[in-house]
């Protein structure tokens, strides 16, 4: 697929690059914060075993 952008290549590509970079940064920040919060919580409150795990000992 070849997309012709003509004389507007710079504005189109810069708008797309900035937007996609912002979306990727937001997703990465969200996942990193989520992993950190999960780790912090597990440090003070280890995850409880499920009933099946408890039966297995």
């Amino acid at each position: 697929m070849i997309v012709e952008l003509g004389k507007y290549a710079v504005p189109v590509l810069s708008a797309w690059a900035i937007s996609l970079a912002l979306i990727v940064a937001l997703v990465v920040q969200t996942l990193a914060a989520s992993a950190r919060a999960r780790r912090d919580l597990e440090r003070v409150e280890p995850p409880r075993k499920t009933q099946q795990e408890s039966r297995r000992g």
């Binding site: 969200t30 919060a37 919580l41 003070v44 409150e45």
Partner: peptide, 18 residues
Amino acid sequence: LLLVRTRTEIRRRRTAAL
């Protein structure tokens, strides 16, 4: 993103409370 971030906030709140 809202679901992940809200879950993060709930975990942070729980950690702070503990």
